[in-house]
Design a protein around this nucleic acid. Sequence first.
DNA 1: TTGTGGTTTCAAAAAGATTTGAAATGGTGA
DNA 2: TCACCATTTCAAATCTTTTTGAAACCACAA
Lengths: 114, 114
Amino acid sequence: MPEIPDPIKEQCLSKGGIEGIVALIPSDQDIDHRSLVFRALAEPMRQKILFALVEQPLCACLLKEMLAISDSKLSYHLSILKDAELIKGKKEGSWIIYQPTKKGNSIAMLIQDF
Amino acid sequence: MPEIPDPIKEQCLSKGGIEGIVALIPSDQDIDHRSLVFRALAEPMRQKILFALVEQPLCACLLKEMLAISDSKLSYHLSILKDAELIKGKKEGSWIIYQPTKKGNSIAMLIQDF
DNA sequence: TTGTGGTTTCAAAAAGATTTGAAATGGTGA
DNA sequence: TCACCATTTCAAATCTTTTTGAAACCACAA
């Protein structure tokens, strides 16, 4: 009574066994970095913010109106997007204008097909 | 004393104002669907599972050994990946062999650059 | 049947993320 | 200086996700 199905075992051995496959998995650092991005995009509100900013840079005041949420809530979600390096804010006069980073832009394009 | 910075206001008006931009944001349905995928990939353990399965189909028993986690924990994470339609399980003899779906495969490729 | 191996379910506990409203910050103009 | 506006921070409350270990399930063989 085998403990592993045969065809899988064979294919697995041809890759150097379990260790061989584990070695092909991206590093923890890579994975943690992507996690940060995925957690940022996991919240619908934050996807909306990113997609709105891809259309055009916006100040917090317009985003707030657009999404109908409180200042502190918006600030919280913006900070998560900033930490994931998907957007950046630039001070202009009295306002902070947000826009996607290069990374934010390209990820926004890629995820259209998800 | 204006309430919105001028250049932003102009660009915004040229897109049909706030409503115009809101109309360009993907639908709630789209966004929620992507959220499911992002939540699934937000957890490092689940990224590892997906990347391992992209290398080769594996039974739960090998995944368990590879990741050094309990049965119920593995089962929980597999169910989240299945719900997001990133992987599927196929019964073969006594085992269930997991592998990425078509969608799981193509997303795994795309996110390498994230 | 009875047992066994592989997997899933369950409920409770623990950990983590989000929301809330109030208070703080920081720059700007009166 | 003072007041004001946009934005951020904070701590508490709430909500969601993950972990845990035990029990259940299911197909199959003895």
